[in-house]
Design a protein around this nucleic acid. Sequence first.
DNA 1: GTGGTAAATGCAAGTAACTTGCAGAGGTGA
DNA 2: TCACCTCTGCAAGTTACTTGCATTTACCAC
Lengths: 138, 138
Amino acid sequence: MATTIVSRLKAGGKKLTKARKAILAVLERNTLPITAAEVHAGLVKSHAAADLVTVYRNLAMLQELGLVNAVGFHEGQMRYEVCHGRAHHHHIQCRGCGKIIDLMLCPLKKLTKLIEEQTKFAVDGHALEFFGWCPQCR
Amino acid sequence: MATTIVSRLKAGGKKLTKARKAILAVLERNTLPITAAEVHAGLVKSHAAADLVTVYRNLAMLQELGLVNAVGFHEGQMRYEVCHGRAHHHHIQCRGCGKIIDLMLCPLKKLTKLIEEQTKFAVDGHALEFFGWCPQCR
DNA sequence: GTGGTAAATGCAAGTAACTTGCAGAGGTGA
DNA sequence: TCACCTCTGCAAGTTACTTGCATTTACCAC
């Protein structure tokens, strides 16, 4: 696990528990955003099972610390990915098979400034996901 | 109610029921996306109460016909707005008070083509929402 | 109008994702 | 090693949404 993650946890007064390490490990070996249930399944598979509640609590905490990113595809559940050390990016999901792929781009920096001028909001984030049909499903 | 909506319903083999008319009326007098519960509350207020189940079923159907748009702000629930007759647009939501405002813009046409070339997906939609703090909450 | 029919509705019960409360376990700094 | 405070697991609760089914309603042909 990256040392920055450890130091950020400590800075937040958080402990480095077995469950927490295992959850971060599962997230780190999945480059694509996964659900809480999938994190839990990953824990079971790696013989480091923790309760699903613990998964939810840790995902929420890691999100607050800015170490994990929540992504929503309107599936009725959230997905999570580690954002530490990765470039800001977005995703596309296939409406057929649900496959997700990374899009290593973001066209919204200029637009954000424009929106701040127009709305007087302090914009501090955005959610952008694309939908379509993958080569296999189209 | 706009005549195009009526004709689109008929084309889809759908009936123009009392509940359906009332739901569309509630949606039409709210320019900003509202939740199913808010639609239901609107029905009660206008003395045209229908069951919440009927609201859900109609929202799903209107979405399928392309008359209504679902918007998700990761609140644990969806919001809906009529899209017929309105220009494609996006939203920003305040993290403090939850206020939503329309952003009459979309920067994604060119990008969509690029993504189609890069991924071989047939892109048929996207979700883009901004988050921040409104002048009152910032 | 009348009657047939397919769609729509309301109610009750069910499901899935996520949250909360609480008692016991376990990191961590002194 | 001790004490403290966080973390965990279990059980129960909440919320948004869905499903099944019997009854009602809109709509079309006559």
